[in-house]
Amino acid sequence: MKRAVAAAGPLAPAALLTAIAFVLPLAWLLRLSLDRSSGGGMLVDAVTAANYLRFLGDGFYLGVLWRSTWMAALASALTLLLSYPLALFLARTRSRWRGFLAVLTIAPLLVSSVVRTFGWMVILGDQGWVNGLLRLVSLTAAPLRLMNNMLGVLIGLTEVMMPVMTLALIAGFARLDPTLEEAARSLGAPPRKVLLRVTLPLSMPGVLLGSLVTFVLSISSFVTPKLLGGGRVAVLATSIYEEALETLNWPFAAAISVVLVAVFGVALMLYERAMRRWMI
C-alpha cells in the first residue's frame, strides 16, 4: 500500500496535468450536455437526456454521424494508399537527398491546414487550375464541381493528413528488419509478394497507428469540411461549431461533442484489438 503510494509519487504531476488538461474539460462537457437551451441560445440549468435523444432520434443527425464516420474512414484509406509507397521509399532510399525529401514530405505540417486548404481552393475552384486545364483542352463545357462538396473535402483531407500518415508509417518501417525481406526474396518471393506477405503485415503497427491518427484527426477536422465543403458537408465537427457559435445551443453542441468522443473511443477500441492481432 505504502509502496504503491511511493511509486505513484513521481507520477503525481503527470496525473494532475492529465486531470487538468483532459478529465476536467471532459467532465464539464458531459455536465453541459445535460443542460437545456431555450429559444435563442439561453442556457438553462437542468439534468436531461433531451440533447442525446434529439441527436439519436433524428435521422438528420444520425446522417451527420454516419457521414462523418465514412468520410474519415475513406480519407484515412486514401491517405494510406498514397502515403504507403512514399513512406516505403523514404524509409528505404539510400539517396543522399533522403533527409531533404523527408523534410519536404513533412514540411506541410509547418503550414496551417487553413492555408493548405486555401491552396486547394485555388486548384479545385470553378476558375481553378484543374478546371482551367480542362477548359484549355476543351474536355468540359461547364466547370466540374470539384469542391464545395464531399469530393473537395476528401481531396483536401487526404492531402492534409498525408504527412501525419507518412510519419507514422516511416516509424513503423524503421522497426522492420530489412533482412526479413531479403529472406523472403531468397525463398523465391518476387517483389510483389515480398510486399504483400512480409512488408505489409510487418508494417501493420505503423499502418494501424497512422490510420487511427488520421481517422481521429479527419473526423474532428473542422477547417477542411467547412472551407472545401461549401457548407454542404455537414459533419460532427461543423455541427458542433454551428451549435456552439451560431445557434448558441451549447448543451446540444456539448452532446454532439460527447458523441464525437464516443466515436474516438470506438476507434481506439478497434485499434487496440487490431494491434493485439498484429503486434508480434
Binding site: D177, T179, L180, E182, A183, A184, R185, S186, L187, G188, A189, P190, P191, V194, V198, P201, L202, W278, I280
Partner: peptide, 20 residues
C-alpha cells in the same frame, strides 16, 4: 538472375524468421 529466381537457401545471422 534476381534473388527470387536463384533458388539459393540462405540462413542469416539474425535468423530472419518472419515474426508474424
Amino acid at each position: 538472375v534476381p534473388a527470387h529466381r536463384r533458388n539459393m537457401g540462405v540462413v542469416f545471422q539474425s535468423y530472419a524468421l518472419f515474426p508474424h
